[in-house]
Each structure stands twice: as C-alpha cells, then as structure tokens.
Amino acid sequence: MICFQLFLAFLQIGMFSFGGGYAAMPLIQAQVIEKYGWLTVEEFTNLITISEMTPGPIAINSATFVGNQVAGIPGALAATVGCILPSCIFVTLLAWIYVKYRNLSLLQGTLTALRPAVVAMIANAGLTILIPTFFRSGLISFAQSNFQIRPVLLFVAAIVLLRRFKWDPVLVMVLCGVCEVAWQLVTGALV
C-alpha cells in the first residue's frame, strides 16, 4: 500500500516537472512534505543538499531516497519507477512523432510559456528552505530569539562566491558546512 502511494506520488512528480533539475523541487515539496508528510522541510533541505553533491537528477535522487526512508528497497524501486515512467512514455511517443513529422513548434511554444511559471515555483520552494534557516520558528519575525544571524551571513557569503567569483556550487555548499562546524567547535558546542 505504502509502495503504491510512493509510486503514485512520484508518478505525478515525473509527469509534471517540466524544465529539468530544480523544476522537480516544488512538486516534490507538494507531494512528499505537504501531502504525505514523508519528509520534514529540514530533511527535504538535506536531500536537496545531498542531490547537489551526487551525480543524478534531483527527481530520481529524491525518489530513491524517500522510497528508501519510507519503505526500504521496495519503496525505492516503486518511487523510482513511478518517477521515470511518464518520461519513458512521453519522450518515446514524442521521438516517434518527431521521426514521422519533424515538427516541434507546439511543444517548444508550450515550454516557452511554462518556463516563467517554473521559475516562480522554484523561487517558492527556495523560500521554503530559506525561511526556516533564517528564522527559527519558520515565521518571518526579527525578534532576537527567532532571527538567526549566522545563516544569513553564510548565505550572503555564498551568494558572493557563486555570483561574483563563479565558484563551483558544491564547493560553496561544503564550505558553508565546514564554517558551521568550525564555529561550533570554537564556541565549544561540539565536544
């Protein structure tokens, strides 16, 4: 039963993530966090971090990870098959139509319209990750107990390294992690 739910959830993720890579994020969030509660926002953030550091698409990585966490290897298989099944059908069908008719204008016109919507939804998924990172309660309020300055500083430094100095994203992320560990060691929180 749980395997079938995993299959259905990732079938929808595979079917509606247009534009590759991060486009799957808002859909994973809607299914995995909001609908089924298989991961918390915190675990989802860790999953995206892990996906950035390993080869493989975010959607497939998420399917395998979530499936494993929820129902072991059978769960991972169910979720991963669900995730790639729409691709297999849709892309094969399109490739077949293309070999016959050689016209893709409708498809490309649709994708042009979809791209801005996808950007907007990725932005929203990004906020879901950033808000609880900056504000302890998950609500935007600058009260001293709620607002965390260290993650904000790390974020700003990471943005500068990524955009101004064009550093590799994986290196920037690892560096952020190492800074936090160093800080915890210095302040004695980690013993």
Binding site: Y22, T45, N46, E52, F155, V172, M173, G177, V178
Partner: peptide
C-alpha cells in the same frame, strides 16, 4: 551550515 549554501545556490 550547508542549508545556507544550498539556499544560495537555488
């Protein structure tokens, strides 16, 4: 720490 980094990447 990496949460801030991945937020920046996104």
């Amino acid at each position: 720490g990496m949460k801030s980094g991945v937020g920046a990447v996104i």
